[in-house]
Design a protein around this nucleic acid. Structure first.
Lengths: 335, 335
DNA sequence: TTGACTTCCCAAAACGTTTTGGAGATCTAG
DNA sequence: CTAGATCTCCAAAACGTTTTGGGAAGTCAA
């Protein structure tokens, strides 16, 4: 409600001086600066964000688009990550805008609306794909952005990601070391980078131990997808003794399929997921999983975005976070 | 990049006329209107949102604050609901701003920053409490808002909510009809309205059937909370035969506690949750739950907000949606 | 023919901020 | 005592839109 004009009038100063005093310029006397700041606090003045961004030609906002098919739940991790991210951005005076989009084509429309209209200064890309048209678009336009997850050419942009490849390699190695010979992979759609990398890690471990079996099934990264995959794998002529699942949601579905067929996960068949969802500790048996070792991915994401807005080079802003195994009861023995 | 001035110049018209043509005013000739619209499309002109909201004195944005304790996951339903909501708001040219806040005091700070600075025209309140200072604040300031969930005085503001009370009454009735005599309630913190109402429904059913037992335990609405509650309830001298849980997350925790003590849910002890999470169908045994019967709560929320911004009275905008039982395997028999 | 009414258009004033390009004091050095 | 340097401050011009208050033709009725 109160603006610079009012503030200036009440202080007997010009708008210019008040503005500069509040922004901490050096060409205003310390005494007046303090007088101005006190008055601003008293009238609890807040700069009008519209006016400010009009003049500065910045939106002071960061956008994230959420591709959501109706009825399908986004991974619960997102909300938490975005929350932490937004909190850090707020400290910098940046708003976090959530732009849900319908399907993949709607997403590009949203991008165009967003950036032609200068509604956001920077963008966060989630559910990154190996070949991601969003990334291509943003690079072409020169908009700062950070992706959550890599693309096929990660060298060319800022990203933060967990080392799912290493995580799955380690997990598969451990299973092999425990005597498992038929380690199957329940994969998520391979255009999603995280899914591709996790599968790659699994493949690497199989190569290492000289296993030639390539038992796998790709499905949607949901409980239903995991269930479907496990059903298919278990009815093969030589069914697997271990299921390495792309996500915990899929693993939970797989557990259900195992139970249905009379298997006990962790005894006859090992199951390992990824994400360490809160519910993973409460499945029956408790689900072995893995997770990004850093507690604050969202915050780091924000930090990278801020650095990018501050002019830092994209190549300096590329983080791969280690993945830590969270063993529980389902990675049990083969031998 | 292109603005009204450029557009006007290229058309040999005034800025005023171009602006009015695009806004569909009647005082511009149909022929010129079309000429303008064609040109606007060709130059893919988008009005600068900052300039527009400066002049219109509106932010063209809706905010939702997300109270998130670090480490604790918000209910996975939120992301979906907000997604659907944001999609509808976008059709109206409104951005959905996500403002994560640290703890309860930080939340009020955020509200003040938000509304003193006119960053949002309207607000969505989630995790509504019986006595909610956010609601008080918004009413005092006269900001349009809709709450997801009711307060203790729901008559005074717009809200959308599921009829958790009826849902829990029905569920408890059914349990009683099946012969259950000691129906316990695993409650969420009672300052949260949804938790209060669900407990109330449970109490109502107990009164109806003349049961005097009041077995209950309140905990955090998480898997861990449900686990803790179930543990406590099961070690009472006269343990319950049914657990009516405030949320599916809690029910999943309870299932785990049951298993640990050698009980089979749905045989010795019934378990029912609420929310119908995707994973509820994949627990062992599959969890009986309930859910709001409407498929598009988020969209309806957006609709109410739009109506409210359009001047509709808050009292006309109060929706209680029916709750439907989703029976699976865990509400099993007592007799 | 004239006055009133339409129809179509426009100049200019906002909205509230930041920034540019000084201007008037006061001080410093010669 | 004067020329420059240094401190403080300010008027005015942006930023791109919407909206106010008309104004110039053209049309119609009397």
């Amino acid at each position: 409600m109160s603006n610079l004009k009012l503030l200036a009038q009440s202080l007997g100063l010009s708008i210019t001086t008040v503005s500069r005093a509040l922004d901490g310029y050096s060409d205003v006397a310390p005494a007046t600066r303090e007088r101005v700041q006190a008055a601003a606090r008293a009238m609890n003045y807040r700069p009008n964000p519209a006016a400010r961004s009009l003049r500065r030609r910045k939106a002071e906002a960061v956008a994230v688009t959420l591709p959501t098919e109706p009825g399908r739940f986004g991974p619960p991790i997102f909300l938490n990550m975005l929350s932490a991210c937004g909190q850090r951005l707020a400290e910098e005076g940046l708003d976090l805008m959530l732009l849900p989009t319908a399907g993949r084509s709607g997403e590009m429309d949203t991008y165009r609306r967003l950036l032609d209209g200068r509604r956001a200064d920077a963008v966060i890309v989630v559910r990154t794909r190996l070949e991601d048209e969003r990334v291509a678009f943003l690079k072409e336009r020169g908009i700062p952005f950070v992706t959550h997850g890599r693309t096929a050419r990660p060298g060319e942009h800022a990203f933060i990601d967990g080392d799912g490849e290493a995580g799955f390699r380690d997990a598969a190695r451990q299973l092999a070391a425990a005597g498992h010979r038929r380690i199957a992979h329940i994969a998520a759609p391979q255009d999603l980078t995280f899914a591709h990398l996790r599968r790659k890690g699994w493949l690497a471990a199989l190569d290492e131990v000289g296993s030639s079996e390539r038992l796998e099934y790709a499905a949607q990264p949901t409980e239903a997808g995991g269930y479907e995959a496990a059903q298919w794998l278990l009815q093969q002529s030589a069914p697997p003794t271990a299921l390495l699942c792309a996500t915990d949601s899929m693993a939970i579905g797989a557990l259900s399929a195992l139970k249905e067929r009379g298997f006990t996960a962790g005894r006859e068949i090992a199951v390992i997921g990824h994400d360490n969802l809160p519910s993973a500790a409460f499945t029956d048996p408790p689900l072995s999983s893995m997770e990004i070792a850093a507690p604050d991915v969202g915050r780091q994401l924000a930090e990278m975005l801020i650095a990018r807005l501050g002019g830092r080079e994209a190549r300096e802003l590329q983080t791969i976070l280690p993945v830590r195994q969270v063993p529980r009861a389902t990675h049990g023995p083969a031998n």
